[in-house]
Amino acid sequence: MKKNVFSLNDEIRSIYINPNETLLEVLRDKLGVKSPKCGCDSGDCGACTVLIDGKSVRSCLILAIEVDGSTISTLEGISKDGLSPLQKAFHEHNVFQCGYCAPGMILSATELLKKNPHPSEHDIKEAIAGNLCRCTGYIPVIEAILDFTKKD
């Protein structure tokens, strides 16, 4: 067990972690943060995406001990002060269906727009290509992001 200290959704957390625990396990099972989902446990589906120091990371592929000193954001943090304009756009467009991919998809889109507020359609596709969705056919996701950036 090793003590780790990191910022999670703007709150400093310190926690004892086993060296073999993934960040996804620690977030969900030890810290009660449930928006990152497990959909493959091998980095293929992106449902477990979180932002570490602003960069999207598959939390099932990273050991929790590696994030000591980092700043981690999940959808819970993004939603803290009410829905972000991007979340609102997703809601207004009825983008998601089952919603299981939504946390990861929204974090990938959030990362993209921070780096590139006016992405092309291809930029958007590239940014969310690591987030698998079986319901929407992706087009509503892409259209909502495009529409949002046009309004901006």
Binding site: H91, N94, F96, I106
Partner: peptide, 23 residues
């Protein structure tokens, strides 16, 4: 009319809980 989904906010906010999320 294209009403917004009744579960839409839950799903975009991360509030939506699935079976494995229950404690």
């Amino acid at each position: 009319h294209s009403a917004e989904r009744v579960d839409g906010i839950e799903k975009v906010s991360g509030a939506a809980l699935y079976t494995d999320d229950l404690e």
